Computed example of a mutant assay.
Amino acid sequence: MTWSQVDRDELLEISRHDPFVRFATSNEIVAVAAPEGWACVGPWRPGSGHWGGAAVVGAGSGSSAETCALQAILEAGGTDLALEWFSTGQERPLSVPDPYACSGSERWSFLWTEQAPGTDAQGLLAQRGLGVQELDDRDDAEAIEAFGAAYTQGRYLGFPGWGFATTWLAVQDRAGGTVAVGALHELASGMPHLAGILVRPDRRGQGIGELLTLELTARAVQEAGVATLGVLTDNREALALYERLGYAVAHRFHTRELATAPEPA
């Protein structure tokens, strides 16, 4: 098959305005298309940070389709292209071309909604004696990170203080104690992406995370007309919650983390 380079406007048409292309990509992309499907890479973060992307092919495509697409992207992008990740469909194979090697992988789903919640999340939290406090990504980074580190297994992925978040919200009790936090990150596309939502263990199962998600979603949709998020595909409870709140699954991805392969000795 032959993969040909296309620009973002062409990619939108070819992908039938796929939500991942619409909301997670900017004009700073390298994209290719073929009869089997499309693929693109670009910065995930503003400022050309965290380059990666995905290949989406039709049912019945050959097992080498995504590998060929990634190779075409590398050839089109030239030597300055530095990728950190690349995704395929859940069960699709990928042979990582030189000069890269696969350094890890995960399976996650990309979700989106343009539907503004009809729920007064802050009002419902207030009925429970809880309030919503805006935090500052820089000034409150240490406190947010301490909360995240205390109640997360592994690394907390809210990344406070990194400049990714445009909004941080904390749910607090009457004594000022934090019971939950969450953020809106800005993608390179300029679209908001929910991240870092975490509820203190002793307050889980009380609907606090759901109400915080609704409040963040409402702010994102009001600001940009859309809210996006990513969740590990095996977290079925979270996926069911987000779908109940109006989110749709655009893609279930298998992402390979990429590292430059060492030169042979």
Rank of each mutant, 00 (worst) to 15 (best):
S189K: 01
A146C: 13
H185Y: 02
A188H: 02
E142L: 10
H185T: 06
D140T: 05
Y156Q: 03
F159E: 00
F147N: 06
A141I: 00
A150C: 14
Q206W: 13
A141P: 00
A149L: 12
E134K: 13
E134I: 09
E210Y: 14
R203E: 13
D136Q: 06
P160C: 11
Q172L: 13
I208E: 11
L212S: 09
A218C: 10
I144Y: 04
E145C: 00
A183P: 03
Q206L: 15
A146R: 11
D137P: 01
A170L: 10
Y151E: 09
G148M: 06
D173L: 09
E215G: 10
T178M: 08
R155G: 04
H185E: 00
Q153G: 14
R204S: 13
L211I: 14
A188K: 02
W168C: 09
A220P: 01
H185W: 03
L187M: 08
A220V: 05
D137W: 02
A220H: 03
A146L: 15
T178Y: 02
L216R: 05
A149E: 09
R203S: 15
D140V: 03
D136F: 05
R138F: 06
A141K: 01
G154R: 04
G154W: 06
S189N: 02
R138C: 07
D139W: 03
A180N: 08
T167E: 05
A175W: 09
A195Y: 01
I197S: 12
R138A: 13
A150E: 07
A175F: 10
D139V: 03
A183K: 01
Q222I: 11
V171A: 11
E142Q: 09
L211S: 07
A218Q: 11
A180I: 13
P160L: 09
G209Y: 14
A149I: 14
R204E: 14
R200F: 10
E134W: 10
L214V: 13
A220I: 05
W162H: 03
A188M: 00
L135P: 07
W168V: 07
I144E: 03
G205E: 12
A170Q: 06
L198Y: 07
A165G: 04
A195W: 02
P160T: 04
V179Q: 07
A183L: 03
D202S: 14
E215V: 14
A175L: 12
A180W: 09
D139N: 09
R155E: 07
A183G: 05
A150D: 06
A150H: 08
F164W: 07
L169F: 13
D136A: 10
L169M: 11
G148F: 06
M191V: 02
L135S: 05
D140A: 02
L187P: 01
A170T: 04
G205C: 15
L194Y: 08
L169R: 12
L157F: 10
R138I: 12
G207S: 13
G148D: 04
G176S: 06
I197N: 12
M191I: 03
T166P: 01
A149H: 11
